[in-house]
Amino acid sequence: MQIAHLKSMWPEGLSDPSGRRQAKPRTRGLTMVIDKGLGLHAFDDLLSSSGEYIDIVKLGFGTSPLYPLPIIRDKIKLALKHGIKIMPGGTLLEAAVRLDLVPGFFNQVASLGFTSIEVSDGTINLSRARRSELIKDARSLGLSVSTEYGKKLFGSRIDVEDFASTAEQDWACGAELVTVEARESGKGVGLFDERGECRDEDLSHILSVVPNLDRILWEAPLKDQQVALIKALGADVHLGNIPAQDVITLESMRRGLRSDTFELQQAPYLEYMI
């Protein structure tokens, strides 16, 4: 038996008992992975084993200029080969704004072959006009844009009305997704409290006010956060800042292949009588 044929030997439907997961390119249930410094071989291994379940890779924070150029170019090529969008972290653009180096940032992003950027103000303050300008400039270069809402400071919360207004304006400027900030720790920022638990009242308020929830991506690096959002919003919720080692685990939860979300399975329930 050849290894290439092993996957097809599983009974039909067992790989996705939910019966709902889209094949790539997906529009529902996007998974964004944060790469905090994987070597090229590890990155290749990640995409070889999990690339089917990854839609976006973000090279975290401001790490992109720290890679040797051949390695970052190879990472970008591998991502594109697997149908994955790839972008530098929003902190890098924030640094470019602060240092007045935005044209150089865009030139290098285009030269290297990145497909996307993230526009954020988690550390700096951006005026509405400047935020809109950055989104439009990126779109004019053929880049897709994700924006991010929220501050990285521990204890920061979501102003729901401001979030709704910001998201509407970002979409009007050409952003594809608006991301809810949670940092890579998932604790004490945005939707999550200092223990990393979901603020259910805040989530309910967001769901009642913010339109186009299918264009919101929720940073949720911790397993219990992913479970909570899947149960609240369904398996097709967009989730980000997923650690590389957790991609297949998350996909199993989306499909009802882990006990936490077993109820997502669509197969008829059978009782066996002895």
Rank of each mutant, 00 (worst) to 15 (best):
G19V: 07
W10I: 01
R20V: 08
A138F: 07
H205K: 13
L250I: 11
W10R: 05
A23P: 04
S49R: 15
S204Y: 01
I135N: 06
T166N: 09
S15I: 02
A172Y: 07
P221M: 10
G104N: 03
R215W: 07
R157L: 15
D137A: 14
A42W: 01
G51V: 05
I135A: 04
D162N: 15
G29F: 03
Y67Q: 04
E194F: 13
P88R: 11
A79Y: 07
Y149W: 14
Y53K: 05
D214K: 10
S252C: 13
L233D: 09
L141A: 08
A164T: 04
Y67I: 06
L99H: 08
E201C: 09
D35E: 09
M273C: 12
E194A: 13
A95R: 14
I72E: 12
K151F: 00
A182Y: 04
R139C: 12
D121I: 06
P243L: 05
I34W: 09
Q226N: 11
L134F: 08
S204R: 05
K58A: 07
A220M: 08
V109P: 00
Y269P: 02
D200Q: 11
D55C: 06
I56Y: 14
F61H: 02
H82E: 07
M253L: 15
S165Q: 13
S64P: 09
D45Q: 00
E251G: 11
I3P: 02
E201W: 06
I230E: 02
R258D: 14
R20Q: 15
P68M: 05
L46P: 01
T115W: 04
T123N: 07
L153E: 10
W218K: 00
G90A: 04
F61Y: 03
V109W: 00
L222G: 04
E94S: 05
L46E: 02
G83S: 00
S252M: 13
S165T: 12
L47Q: 01
G83E: 01
M273N: 09
M1N: 06
G190E: 09
D193H: 03
V160F: 10
E168L: 15
M32F: 05
A96G: 03
S116T: 01
N125P: 00
V57M: 12
L66I: 00
L270A: 11
D236E: 13
I86P: 03
R255P: 01
K81M: 07
Q2Y: 11
P70Q: 01
T179L: 08
V160S: 11
E184M: 02
D260Q: 01
K58S: 07
S144D: 06
N212I: 08
D100N: 15
V178F: 03
L207C: 14
H82V: 04
A23H: 08
I86K: 03
I3Y: 10
V102S: 06
V57G: 01
L177T: 06
E161T: 15
